[in-house]
Amino acid sequence: MSMEKIVCDKADLIENSGVCALVQDEQIAIFYLPGTGNEVFAISNWDPIGQANVLSRGIVGDLQGEIVVASPLYKQHFSLTTGKCLEDESASVKIYPVSLINDKVVIQ
């Protein structure tokens, strides 16, 4: 994706949790963590280990300072800033630049 796209309203987000948006056939998990640097984070919804579209339904938190989501299937942690899996170096998910502009969620 090359151009900026408004995907949803800030009101669609859930504090300290995730939702999923469909953008040009890609499932994107969007997490809203008020009080952290960027406040919104976007990664692919596809769990490469569990092989299902579920990451938006994981629990978010931090491990050793890294902001992560835990897969709801087998509990591996994926960094919301780098997309890397903390438990398995060979696994990672795509990350998307995202920001909150005028109460809209915008993916670049």
């Binding site: 963590l33 952290t36 994981g58 629990i59 938190g61 931090d62 300072g65 992560v68 835990a70 509990k75």
Partner: peptide, 10 residues
């Protein structure tokens, strides 16, 4: 301290 995780939150 911190944000919590999938152990302490549930």
């Amino acid at each position: 301290k911190g944000l919590g995780c999938d152990i302490c939150k549930p």
